[in-house]
Each structure stands twice: as C-alpha cells, then as structure tokens.
Nucleic acid binder design. Structure first.
Lengths: 232, 232
DNA sequence: ACCTGAACACCGTTCAAGT
DNA sequence: ACCTGAACACCGTTCAAGT
C-alpha cells in the first residue's frame, strides 16, 4: 500500500502517483466515456505517465474497476444521516442512497459485489447488519437477513441501472422503452398474456420507484417475520 | 434470422452455420473456459470456419453473450412444473429454478438483464406476471410487483453467483470465504460491530439458502400487501 | 521505491474476395 | 446468401532499464 509522498513540483502532473489518484482518475474517465472508454494507455496519458506505472499501484484492470466502483459506493454514506429513527427507515434510506449513488455512475452498478472485501462494501454491510440487529429478529437470522438486503440493494440496482450504460446516448431511455413496448405488443397474447397487456406500464414506469417497490416488499416481509402479529 | 439448411456432408463440421449452432457452441465454450475463454477466433475454429463468418449471424460479442445467457435462462423452464398450486408456491419454484440454472453456468448470471427483450427473459417475466395476477393484488400494481420479483431473481442470483466465476479453480469457494472471514476478524469492532461478530456465519453460509431467505422475505411482503389481514 | 515505454501476445471487427 | 481469412486498430500486461 504505497502512499503519496508530498510536495508539488511544477508543470504536468504535480504530485507523485498513488492508488487514490489513479482510482479517482479512473472514476472520472468511466463517468465520461463509459466502461469501454477506460484504458490503461489513456488513463496513463491523463496522469502524465506510462501504462506500466499504474501496475505498481493496482494489480490489474479488474481490481482498478472494482476499486472505482467501491469509491462510488462510498458516495452513498455522505447522503445518509448517521442515526435514523427506526431500523426500517434507516435501511430504506441507506438503500435509496446506494441506488442514487450508482444511478449517477451507471458503469459502477454491475461491479459492486458481495461478499464484501472492499472498504465501502464492508461499511455498507456492517451498517445494514447493525440496523437489522435493532429489529426484533432472533440473532441467528441477522446474517442471512442482512446479506439478503445487501444483495437486494446492489443486485437490483445493477439490474435496473446497468442497461442504461449500454445505450450510450445513441438511443435515449424513452426510445428504448417505446421500442421494447412495441415488441411486446407484437407478441401472441395466447403465449404472453401478461406482457401484451402491460406495455403502457413499461413505457411509463420510473426506475427509482421500481427499486423502492421491491425494497418495501422486502422490508415489509421483514416486519412480518420480526413480529408475527402486525399491529392492527 | 437465417436458418439451418439441411443435409450433412462429410467430415469437419457437417451442417451449415446458424445462429443456434453458434450460440450453442458459445455456451459450451463459456462453460469450459469462462467468460475470458470465449473468443471469436477460438469459437470459429471449433466450428471449422473463420471469425468473419460468425458476424453474419450475430451482431457482435455482446449480443452473442447475451444470447448465450438467455439460453441458460431457458433451462429453468424445463425444471419447473407448468401449473403450481398457489401463486406464491409457483413464484418460489420458478425463482429457484432460475437460480439453479444460473448456478450451473456462473458466467451467465451477470448477463441476464431487464427489461426483457430476449426470448427466455420474455417468457420469465410473463410467467411471473401471470402468477402475480392470481394474487389478490390490485391490477395497477401487477407490473411494478412482477418486475420487482424479476429483478430480485436475476439481480440477486447474479450477486451470489457471479463472484464464483471470478475465482477460477485457483482458489476454492471455501478458501475464499475463510480468507474473507479472517479479514473481517482483523477489523476494529468499534467501526465494524456487526461484521466482527458474524464471521462464522459467513464461513458456514449456503448460497442457495441466501437466495431463498431474501426471496421468502419478498414473497412474504407480497402476501401482507395482498391481504392486509393475514390468516390467524 | 517508483517510474518509463517499448514489446509481446493477444483481442473484436471489417471487408474485399470468393462460392 | 453465406463464408473466408487477411488486415486494421486496437487492447492488457510484462519487463528490462532507468532514477
């Protein structure tokens, strides 16, 4: 784990290289040009160095992208209050903060993975676990439930957000949905009874609402399990 | 959409090329050598042709991998009975069948995406929607709930399964979990109160149980919403 | 300890030319 | 209509050599 040394000389890139600097530049490049736009050559050029230099700080491209995604995940914590009234409300706020963070960096969504090994993924799971522990759930279920929630947050966010990073400005989201809706309309209602009558919902749906719908279902199920007799 | 013509000459690859043949060979190659082992050159060689030939049948590598993943998704339908007693049981069986199908082809998990455009993804969502429609849920919620379930199935499966395709036989799952557990143990309990006391759960957990835990939470929440007064 | 940049061993994709 | 295979324009990664 190398660290930045100090001082800033003059011209070009000032500081010495560091893992943080590299990851930061990678995030910027990914934001600008998408996953395929990130290249060791291009990244090196932007940092005024050669591609080989980067390999002293990161093992390979997979690690670099994973670190970049973890940095994006970290944005979520800034948006969420430290302590929340109830466990349910806290989990909901945390989940939505993660979704919003990934939504602003679509390339990152498919690269946050579990089980947690990177810094912010660790923080996230611990936060979830701590909130779950405040529920009435028996202790032996804490791990399974916490990871289930964590999987939902990152997995469903990836499903919802990742497709957006595929259609790079050539097609808009609206155009894509309209086109998909048309394909659904052309299906045989005998084979696809549900899809053929659901095309307007497809066209009009909001991604964030989709995320919270499933989230609330999940948290709802949590309450039921925690307290067998729901109030009134 | 070209189709296979007929007859089989002698020697080498017998039949004419077709999209189905190419996708089938791609699945085999992905199963054998993982995502990075799939190459147009290698695939072409196995089919006794040149790389350029493949481009007459598929647009590019992204499409090929998406088609391969969709074929794997199709395996799930073979494992699931046509009609299930209740909607809840049907959804559960369907979800687990998808998980198991993806579990046998880990590379595929991260490539099944929504909203559905490919054949088996369409079938899956329609099946889910049809089952959801049998619930007591108001019709205007069918789309949101169905896609939420669909997102859960594919998204959480991907989270759970995809990491496995990263550690290619060099490290076993057990070794990886043990190593991760050790990292958790070294964390400061003041910063990570949950993780530091949950390492044995991490080591002992079963992936499939993890999937069903969240699934049951979700379906549980569904029942609560569908019928405000749960029986007894 | 950290950086350089040429070189290696590949890729996906295109396209003129064939049948 | 479908296939061939050489060629183009890249990649990630390594590594001897520098400071």
């Amino acid at each position: 784990m190398p660290r930045t040394r100090g001082r800033a000389p003059t011209g070009g890139r000032a500081d010495a290289l560091s893992r943080e600097i590299i990851v930061g530049a990678a995030v910027a490049l990914l934001d600008e040009r998408g996953e395929r736009g990130l290249t060791f050559r291009l990244l090196a050029k932007q940092l005024n160095t050669g591609p080989g230099a980067l390999y002293w700080h990161v093992a390979n491209k997979d690690e670099l992208v994973a670190l970049a995604a973890d940095q994006v995940l970290g944005h979520a914590f800034a948006a969420v209050p430290r302590l929340e009234e109830g466990a349910g409300a806290g989990l909901r706020a945390l989940a939505i903060a993660v979704f919003d963070a990934l939504d602003r960096h679509p390339w990152a969504a498919s690269h946050v993975t579990a089980p947690a090994t990177l810094a912010n993924a660790l923080r996230l799971l611990d936060r979830i676990g701590t909130l779950v522990a405040r529920t009435g759930l028996p202790a032996e279920r804490h791990f399974a439930v916490s990871t289930a929630i964590s999987y939902y947050i990152t997995g469903v966010s990836a499903q919802i957000i990742a497709p957006r990073s595929a259609l790079d400005s050539t097609t808009s989201r609206d155009a894509f949905l309209t086109q998909t809706a048309e394909r659904w309309e052309e299906l045989d209602p005998a084979d696809y009874p549900f899809l053929t009558r659901t095309t307007t919902d497809l066209r009009d749906h909001d991604d964030r609402d989709q995320f919270t719908t499933g989230l609330d279902l999940l948290l709802n199920g949590l309450n039921t399990t925690a307290d067998p007799r729901p109030p009134a």
